[in-house]
Amino acid sequence: MEKAPKTAKRGVFDWSILGFWLIGGLLVLFIVLAILSIAVPELGNPGHLADVATDPSVLLTLGITLIAGLNAVAILVLIGTPLAYALSRSTFPGKGLVESIIDLPLILPHTVAGLMVYLLFMSQGIIGAPLGNVGIVFEDAYPGIVVAMVFVAIPYYVNTAREGFETVPVRLENVARTLGASRSRAFWHITLPLSSRHIYYGALLAWGRAIGEFAAVIMIAYFPMVISTLIYYRFATGGLSEAMSVALVMIVICGVIFVLFRLLLKKKEGPDDQA
């Protein structure tokens, strides 16, 4: 009698994936250990942590950081979305060069990025000078933080949004146009909703990148302090424990925001999934 072929039993663990998890899980472990190295000592002294978490200067800095990040993302969405769409729908000589320029903030040392932003927006800079004349100052000022954040976050938003637009077939826009929609109405009614998940995700990435920026920000605006500047300041003046408390507060707030946002994205029946 022939032996029946072995069949996989339902619900049996796929052991072959375990090796991948064992190797890849090291990266997750790396991040978790880094968080624990701050969290464990800090949670051992909850009184001090609570003092720092309710310190008005820390809260003010946190507020400035989060709101400046939102402002930077708003600017990126307004200007970066048309750029991402144009890139997704155009072919022209030199397109690779434009894409490389957009990617530049990814590979530049952040101090170099900060220097470039500073030279543009300082009081004698080619953008900073005329805007200074109408009362918009960037050096050691809130607008300086925002422009530095925008600069470093450009590729995160533009590239993610562009990928989203590229997932929407041009034929859908074509059909919309034959049905009477102008190019811009086809964009609003068809392309934008269908790439919304990418847009949201790009904005989240850009925001995360923006609020974590340190070097580029301090080059143009040491004050008002953003959270990374404050952590560095506390580390330099008060030692490791002072810096760690602020850092843990930042980790918790960012972690909560990111997890909530991801849950929202998952819950939202994304048109990207339906396309």
Binding site: N174, V175, L179, L194, P271, Q274, A275
Partner: peptide, 27 residues
């Protein structure tokens, strides 16, 4: 194209995936 009023159906039908049938037809 939007001013020509010419109906077009692609091979893959290119229905708008985020709209219901009713909204597709009404577009």
């Amino acid at each position: 194209a939007e001013d020509r009023n010419i109906g077009f159906v692609y091979q893959d039908y290119s229905l708008f995936p985020h709209y219901t049938v009713r909204k597709n037809v009404a577009f």
